[in-house]
Simulated assay, not measured.
Amino acid sequence: MERGLIAVDRWNEESQAYFLTHLHADHTRGLSSDWSRGVLFCSPISAALFPSRFPGFDLSLLQVLEIGRPRSLKLASRSDGQDLSVRVTAIDSCHCPGSVMFLFQGDLGCVLYSGDFRWEPTNEQAWRAKKTLLRVLGGDAVDLLHLDNTFCNPAFDFPPRDVAARQVIDIVNRHPDHEIVIGVDTLGKEDLLVQISQAFNTKVWVWPERLETMHLLGLNGMFTTQTAQTRIRAIPRYSFSAATLVALDSLHPTLGVMPSGLPWSPRPHDYYAAPHRLIHTVHFSAHSCFREIADFVRLLRPAKLAGTVPSSSCYLNPWHFFSHLCQPHSESTSPKHPSKKRKSTVRPRISESRD
């Protein structure tokens, strides 16, 4: 896709339209309260959370994309000035509140930005999102898939989030006399905290800014900032440390729980370090595991794919694993031939069974 037309989660470059997949900090670098480069498209939930994240932001710049409803864009080629017609559709990515994929169709071909996503086979929300994506595609094949390759390695295989949530609840249940400290981000894993609150019929402590987010999401009555009301606390991930837990444990028996796709380590990026005696790691991940990434690529069979996470020892180029699932890119799929749409030769089906 020609640069300068569409920017997804890129805020420091010139573009004719900007798109926000979700409000996690690693996707908003360069975005600030005084940012004013152009129109910013996002989901309804992200728009509702936006003022609390960026106070003073010019909200007239926000354009809300309803989930599953295509929106037409008028762009102009920077190379020759030719008018370009593009449709964009936001698809639920099931990563955190407000997170979406963006599907672009039209004169630029068919391009899907997955953003961060987790589509578990047994998840009702993911099932609906998959059904919406296939409906909007309407038989068009994906020319280019920008893929969340966070856990694109066969070593990463973890359970669905509802299973991991039950594991956390079991840990809490087995330690009735302990204070429980759970490390979470400023957005995400609300479903886990709600399940814990419901399982023990108790409120969960959160810090004041997190409580505001909970209220904006309509989660009222299950969270508190009063430590005396509960033994279960959700603290910012950046505050979650062995030193913090040891200090708390010296006052009252305390146990830490880190819900993450990666094992918690006392030394950053050293995932082979011995676990701490006060910390339980539970594989509760908001990113798809390797098997789910493979299922996603197999569903779409794009002509090309590219990872959104740079390659490293953990994050591998998805082409290495999934090139055999991609369809050859024919001449007619080039943006030089926008009138010719490449139809998928694979007919994905959504089973009515979600077991």
Rank of each mutant, 00 (worst) to 15 (best):
C94S: 11
S72R: 15
H175G: 03
V297A: 03
E292F: 00
R237V: 12
I180M: 14
H280N: 10
G183K: 04
V181K: 09
R10D: 02
L61E: 01
K189D: 13
P51T: 03
S265A: 15
P328S: 10
W264P: 10
D148T: 01
H178Q: 11
T28C: 04
K341Y: 00
A243F: 00
L305Y: 10
E14S: 14
T224G: 06
L5N: 09
K336N: 14
Q82Y: 00
H283M: 11
W205V: 01
K131D: 14
N220M: 04
Y315N: 13
R347C: 11
T224D: 04
R231G: 14
S334C: 12
K343W: 11
L192P: 07
L49D: 03
L187P: 03
E124M: 04
A17S: 13
E190F: 03
R291Q: 15
Q198C: 07
M258N: 14
T244W: 05
E14W: 05
W127D: 11
S197G: 14
I279D: 07
L299V: 05
I67G: 02
Q327T: 15
S334P: 03
G30F: 01
L147N: 04
S33E: 01
D143P: 05
T308M: 15
L62R: 06
L133W: 06
F322P: 04
R128T: 10
T186C: 05
A17V: 15
F41R: 12
G115N: 08
T227D: 09
S241I: 07
G183P: 04
T224H: 08
Q327P: 00
L248T: 00
H178A: 13
S46L: 02
N12Q: 13
Y272P: 00
N220Y: 03
I235D: 03
L316C: 05
P44A: 07
I232W: 08
A243M: 09
S93F: 04
D148K: 07
A243K: 14
D92L: 06
P253G: 08
E179D: 14
C152S: 13
P259E: 11
I293L: 08
F19M: 05
M258L: 11
S99N: 07
